[in-house]
Design a protein around this nucleic acid. Structure first.
Lengths: 137, 137
DNA sequence: TATTTGCACTTGCAAAATGCAAGCAAAAAT
DNA sequence: ATTTTTGCTTGCATTTTGCAAGTGCAAATA
């Protein structure tokens, strides 16, 4: 859990120290696009993260201030995770990953159609999503 | 070395299966921005990758067709690694990582100045670098 | 009120990935 | 002919990950 060790001062390296693993961006994706907000919902995602890894990643993302744990309005037993502005600002990067994947990987037709929409008005899409997310912070 | 196992059909997940680790993007960075092309040059980078990990990553990136091993013009003992178009197409994402890092992380003044330049004309910068890299493929 | 269920984790242990130091073969330099 | 450079590989300790089971608190149910 030594997320604090910076390997260099390079901005890419520092960024990877924060979210450069197989799971962190998927949790952010779940919050950003799929409206997931709880531990149990993250667990159900298709990739199948294990419980201890999810707990560790949530803690690390919280320490990096990419998300915050808040009280859930429905129940004290639940925890509501929210993206911070710092996390929402990752959207442009995530959009570029989509565009790259659409060009170079095998993508399902539905996903491809969606990404085509993004391509038509990238800035508009980013603004729309970021506005929506900002309202929830 | 099981890079072939896809966790889901999600484009982000598939992308992370390819370059979602602490080292792959740093090797691509070295090729993209620092003109490094050989094993020995990658080894010298500030982050200090170990020899076996570097060898494994180079192989995995080659398998993912993000780079190709070619003969070095200077010597048969050397291997010249080149970015593919698939890797060059990661530049917009890498630029967005820089912009995010400039906003949210502690960046050295020199790096910050450079990123400011990118911000003035993001498309122009990307086109410039991509053209330069494409000439070398 | 007692009991069961749901939720967010924690724990123990095996397996895999990483990191470090040393070694190694082919090519190049001396 | 010998040494150095280059791009790795190997062995082993450490760290991280993955899986299964368990825990404690809150909420729902009987």
């Amino acid at each position: 859990m030594e997320k604090t060790v910076k390997r260099s001062k390079c901005p890419i390296s520092c960024s990877l120290d924060i979210f450069g693993d197989k799971w962190s961006l998927l949790i952010i994706r779940d919050l950003m696009f799929f409206g997931k907000t709880t531990y149990g919902e993250f667990l159900k995602s298709a990739e199948g993260i294990s419980t201890n890894i999810l707990a560790a990643r949530l803690q690390s993302l919280e320490e990096s201030q990419l998300l915050i744990r808040t009280e859930h309005p429905d129940s004290k037993a639940k925890v509501l995770y929210k993206l911070t502005e710092k996390a929402v600002d990752l959207l442009p990067m995530i959009v570029e990953i989509h565009l790259w994947a659409e060009k170079h990987l095998t993508i399902t037709p539905e996903t491809r159609a969606l990404i085509q929409e993004v391509k038509k008005d990238k800035e508009g899409f980013i603004t729309k999503i970021m506005t929506k997310l900002s309202e929830r912070i």
